[in-house]
Amino acid sequence: MTAVPATASSTATVVCDYDRLTPELGVAALVGGEQVAIFRLADGSVHAVQNLDPFSGASVMSRGITGSRGDVPTIASPIYKQVFSLLDGTCLVTMDKSPKAGHAPDLVVYPVTLDNGQVIIDLAGSE
């Protein structure tokens, strides 16, 4: 959560004010045609992952429950309850299910930067 460097790529998009985010409650955003789920946690950090839930095929991750497994902050799918790391998108709990055909089990994570009270997502930096 450093300020956006001057060389920020043109794919970086301002999504909303930081104050628009409620702690522990996600929101969805449309960034360059992609759906992104954004979470502000109780410690103030902001995380962004793909909104598409690979196990149901529905775009719902922003409506999941945040939490932790050990020290890792997590998000649980609201549909079949799989749990993913908010740090690197790894699926930590599959609930004995496989992702829908054509989907990887892990979530894509997008880098988030905060600048002047604004939340900025950069699609190009996804991993």
Binding site: C16, A28, L30
Partner: peptide, 14 residues
């Protein structure tokens, strides 16, 4: 109860 925080008028296109 908003679809997208930056595009509240747009429905889920999927």
């Amino acid at each position: 109860f908003t679809s997208f925080v930056n595009a509240p008028d747009q429905a889920d296109p999927t």
